[in-house]
Amino acid sequence: MDPPSLDTLMRVAAFERVRGLNEIHDHLTTSELKPGFLFRGERIALVNPQRGLFKPQQMRFLLSIKTVFPKPGAKVWYDD
């Protein structure tokens, strides 16, 4: 089995940060997520306030930790 890629290690660190934030906040908003997290001494963003799907420049693939709850009667753009 190959060792985890750098992207995978960053992704694990991102979700560990989100899990830790979730332990101290009832629900997470952009304010809590905006500072990001440190990975090997470098700040990595968790969110981009202007975009839903987001790819930190240090990562190879998208990092999506936010979701949108549709308003009643509004169009649902995706069902995942």
Rank of each mutant, 00 (worst) to 15 (best):
M1V: 07
M1H: 06
D2Q: 06
P3F: 07
P4D: 10
S5I: 02
S5A: 08
L6V: 12
D7H: 04
D7G: 01
T8D: 06
T8Y: 05
L9K: 10
M10Q: 12
R11M: 13
A13S: 15
E16Q: 14
R17E: 10
V18S: 04
V18Y: 03
R19F: 11
G20A: 08
G20L: 04
N22Q: 14
H25E: 13
H25A: 11
H25K: 11
H25P: 05
T29L: 12
T30I: 02
T30L: 04
T30C: 02
S31D: 13
K34N: 06
P35M: 01
P35C: 01
G36C: 06
L38V: 06
L38H: 09
R40F: 00
R40P: 00
G41A: 03
G41Q: 02
E42P: 02
E42F: 00
E42A: 09
I44N: 06
I44R: 03
I44T: 09
A45F: 00
L46S: 06
V47G: 06
P49R: 07
P49M: 04
Q50P: 00
Q50T: 11
R51P: 00
G52S: 10
L53M: 15
K55G: 09
P56A: 02
Q57P: 03
M59N: 04
F61T: 11
L62A: 13
L63M: 11
S64T: 05
S64L: 04
K66I: 10
T67K: 12
F69C: 14
F69V: 15
F69M: 12
F69R: 15
P72W: 13
A74T: 09
A74V: 02
V76K: 08
W77A: 14
Y78A: 10
D79N: 12
D79A: 09
D80G: 12
D80Y: 03
D80Q: 09
